[in-house]
Nucleic acid binder design. Structure first.
Lengths: 329, 329
DNA sequence: TGCTTTTAGAAAAGCCCTTTCATAACAAGA
DNA sequence: TCTTGTTATGAAAGGGCTTTTCTAAAAGCA
């Protein structure tokens, strides 16, 4: 059932049907009514593909993320989707696993589908976008990197000041008199490096020089946090506080500490990062840092649509995290 | 840059370019190479829209969910996306909030975009799909309802036996000698009713007749679980175990119990549902029920693609949850 | 040499719209 | 009455590809 069938059945030309469909141009009310009746009767649905053929756009945006199961990405992607939906765009979801190869594969398809824009959610994409073949693919489509910096003419970035975010946590601990503070580091993205940098420089600024050595490398999951704590205990080193790069590792740390008989925060203070549900489930509730994924998402959408619709009001922007007081420091 | 430009530059006809592009028909290796070289040099990307125009398919599947931020849905959607991606489909993500109106809006767009299929993730869609206008929209497109039952010729369903799932938890508690068991109920979807039914019937079967009264209604979040516990304590009723419909409410329950000075599981046993990360973060680790979202997703994709490609091997299927032993019973 | 197969092109149809241009009808002003 | 301006409508082109059919040249084979 296409526009021709409708036109024939209504006894008008396809132009008239199109006018009725799009509320454009002058259509005699009587004619309009007749066409609408036929439209209704046949449950006619115009083909967005054919429309896309003409407009060269399917009103679709690709959201590339690492893994939608990670709450932080889920929150970001959720808000992006909702915002774009309100503006009449659909969202294609891509879980790249943070791998360049998968990213490239998705991008290829997205370019074929002529998406109106692309949002990259996750700090890994900073690294991935260094690859020349990926840069090349991105240079002909509006792109926003949520959390990072993309140096391209057709792109904007939303930056989260994670260096400052970790500094907030570290300073809060220093104020409480902590000196033996360890950092639980789990990844090696741009954002992770900012955090680590924030940790070291804040401590050094406070006159704690050996900060650089106080790092526990682990994986980005509950088990990772637990392992880090157990290793630290085993090592016999003195510690009174743990700054974790993620809520999930912080939750793991608290769990392991409790299991090993430490009291939190009386014996050991812990901070998380992300202000996720994980922080609230943890008992005691985690003191954490809100890096505002919803805000990142809103800005990303704002920037992307201004790129798409060429109404560039903004340029890139930076978001300041906030400390969220829990009961673990 | 379209197929004509390529043909001209390579000194061949568009038919030949098309043959090269689609690996169809006979093309002389030398010609193929020349065409490929031109394709490469110009970074030619065939328009998926134009292809879709011909094939009437954009190789896209819509995944409608309630809210991708809910871990259970995120896990399901993630697996669906990955599986479909392997099979050459893209996924359009729709967060409906479980509202009929939003669902209808999304469906309308999806039908215009001529998606190849639709997966409904969440038990709410059982109710939503009762609405005649939504049924009507769904009857001309392959649909799979993940967790529910859709009575339509072009649809399949994956059923999760949540009745049995809760029965597992209840029976485990009964075996440990618990009699004063309460159910923390948070929603009113088909799945929630199955759980409630499983709770009541299992207890009645064990000779505990007053089971129906042992229900605490609350919201589906951490705070909800905490509130339920506090209200129960306030009420002065005797209780030794709580069966929760969700891990998040169970985590809240545990948190509130600990804060109120109860020991878990010595004083009160708690079970969750979903086998999510929440269960593992909880200290003590929650005893929970695995309702296998990944399996649901795999089956959903299998069923959907068999509907799309009309190779119906399966019909609908049912999944049995499993008890996951933690430390809270 | 004659016949079949391979390779390639030309041309047209089809997919379903939007958009521009042209035309008809009709009312209002000169 | 004739011109001008509106309003309402249709015809046709175009968008980028696939697919099909027909033609024809080149190549392979007996």
């Amino acid at each position: 059932m296409n526009i021709y069938d409708i036109a024939k059945e209504a006894g008008v030309s396809i132009s008239t049907v199109s006018r009725v469909l799009n509320n454009k141009g002058n259509v005699n009310p009587a004619t309009r009514e007749k066409v609408e009746e036929v439209l209704e009767r046949n449950h006619y649905t115009p083909s967005a593909i054919a429309r896309g053929m003409v407009s060269k756009s399917m009103r679709t945006v690709a959201v590339l993320t690492v893994d939608i199961r990670v709450p932080h990405y889920a929150r970001t992607a959720y808000t992006i989707e909702r915002e774009l939906s309100h503006r009449g765009y659909e969202v294609t979801l891509c879980n790249t696993g943070g791998e360049a190869e998968e990213t490239e594969k998705y991008l290829r398809t997205m370019l074929e589908k002529k998406v109106d824009g692309i949002v990259l959610v996750g700090s890994v994409f900073n690294t991935i976008c260094q690859k020349p073949e990926i840069r090349k693919m991105l240079c002909n489509v509006p792109v926003v990197l949520a959390n990072g910096k993309l140096e391209m003419p057709n792109s904007y970035s939303v930056l989260v000041d994670d260096r400052y975010g970790i500094a907030l946590a570290v300073n809060a601990l220093i104020e409480k008199g902590h000196r033996d503070i360890y950092y639980v580091k789990d990844m090696d993205t741009v954002s992770a490096r900012l955090k680590w940098d924030g940790f070291v420089s804040t401590l050094e600024h406070a006159g704690i020089a050996e900060a650089k050595k106080n790092v526990l490398h682990t994986t980005s999951d509950l088990e990772g946090g637990m392992r880090a704590v157990r290793e630290l205990i085993q090592s016999g080193r003195k510690f009174s506080a743990l700054v974790c790069g993620e809520d999930i590792t912080a939750a793991g740390a608290v769990k392991a500490l409790l299991q090993e008989g430490y009291r939190v925060p009386e014996d050991v203070a812990v901070t998380g990062y992300n202000n996720s549900e994980y922080a609230r489930i943890c008992e005691p509730t985690l003191t954490t840092v809100d890096n505002k994924p919803e805000l990142v998402a809103m800005f990303s959408v704002q920037l992307l649509t201004s790129l798409i619709e060429k109404t560039d009001a903004y340029s890139s922007c930076t978001i300041q995290p906030e400390l969220v007081e829990g009961k673990t420091i």
